[in-house]
């Protein structure tokens, strides 16, 4: 349904997203993993046609076979909410503070589907029921500040689902929430995707959440998609040095926090930090921080190499070894 081919987003000389290729089908549950600045949010915004005005877009984006690469704002308005919807990171600030929840919820239904207020309200109540909001009728009259963070995120999910989108993008939906609330929200997203046959793109830096929610995973670094495959396999045996480093940096509960001499163990970390977009290496974006360095790494962009029939990684190491 949604296809990206060699899709790039750049600002002047800085490339936020480089030649991304992606194919999202009905029922897919795809995790996008990466650090801040890896391009994962830009990818999500691009799928919504909401890349900043200053962005230069290259490549091709098609939705249901329709070329949307340079589609007008009006065309995108028809796509948003009905074909692709999105929930955002900050449930606290993502709702208009001056509007009652009911008015915010009913607006897209009235605008897009031409429902009357009564019809829209009935739909909203059903949606609230579906996403597990208790006492839905009372919530309609409330203002956002009267709800908890978890409740607000459920409202935002209901809002995104209002016009039955084929694809739901969740951009770090749980980062701002308590751990136990976050768990319930991720489980809710999976349940909704299954029940509605809706594709889900789950963007996060939380590997545990990805493991729970998604079937497939794409790892991003510096605007490149560097590794992809079924979530379980990639997390069990990562092929790209960056993914390996990312997994090694997770705290392991089976390792005691102090070693034999009583010194505190330090978590393994990736050396260095992500360079600013404009200063990324031209070749492999990870060169310079990588534990292995081949002569071609800094200058030549690695292509995708198959690891398994349905797995690939963009790393020169995989090309070198037959």
């Amino acid at each position: 349904m949604f296809q990206l081919a060699d899709f790039s987003v750049s600002f002047g000389t800085a490339t936020a997203l480089r030649r991304a290729t992606l194919d999202i089908r009905q029922g897919d549950r795809l995790g996008i993993v990466g650090e801040s600045g890896s391009g994962k949010t830009m990818l999500a915004l691009a799928l919504m046609g909401m890349a900043p005005d200053a962005a230069k877009i290259g490549g091709r984006l098609t939705i249901d076979g329709q070329d949307m690469t340079h589609a007008s704002e009006r065309t995108w308005q028809q796509m948003r909410a009905r074909r692709v919807a999105m929930i955002f990171q900050e449930p606290m600030s993502a709702l208009n503070p001056l509007r009652r929840i009911g008015d915010t919820m009913m607006e897209p239904l009235i605008v897009h589907e031409g429902l009357s207020r009564a019809q829209a309200q009935a739909r909203v109540l059903a949606l609230f029921e579906e996403v597990g909001i208790p006492d839905p009728a009372a919530r309609l009259r409330m203002f956002p500040h009267e709800l908890s963070g978890g409740q607000r995120q459920r409202v935002l999910i209901a809002l995104a689902l209002a016009c039955n989108p084929a694809l739901l993008i969740a951009d770090e939906p749980t980062t701002a929430l308590d751990a136990n609330v976050a768990l319930r929200i991720t489980d809710l997203l999976v349940r909704l995707a299954r029940e509605r046959g809706m594709a889900l793109v789950f963007i996060t830096h939380d590997l545990a959440a990805v493991a729970r929610t998604t079937k497939d995973i794409v790892v991003m670094y510096g605007g490149d998609m560097i590794e992809r495959g079924p979530t379980a396999q990639v997390l069990a045996a990562p092929a790209h040095p960056y993914t390996q480093g990312l997994l090694a940096a997770r705290p392991d509960p089976t390792v005691p926090p102090r070693d034999a001499t009583g010194k505190r163990r330090r978590l393994p970390t990736l050396p260095g930090t992500v360079p600013p977009l404009a200063a990324l290496p031209q070749g492999c974006r990870f060169s310079g921080r990588c534990s292995v360095e081949l002569p071609q790494c800094a200058g030549t962009r690695p292509t995708d190499h198959a690891v398994d029939p349905d797995r690939s990684a963009a790393c020169h190491l995989l090309g070198a070894a037959p």
């Binding site: 308005q77 955002f88 709702l95 607006e107």
Partner: peptide
């Protein structure tokens, strides 16, 4: 602010 992005994401016109 974030809620403006939410509103646009709901397919509302500018």
């Amino acid at each position: 602010q974030d809620f403006v992005r939410t509103a646009r994401a709901s397919g509302l016109s500018r």
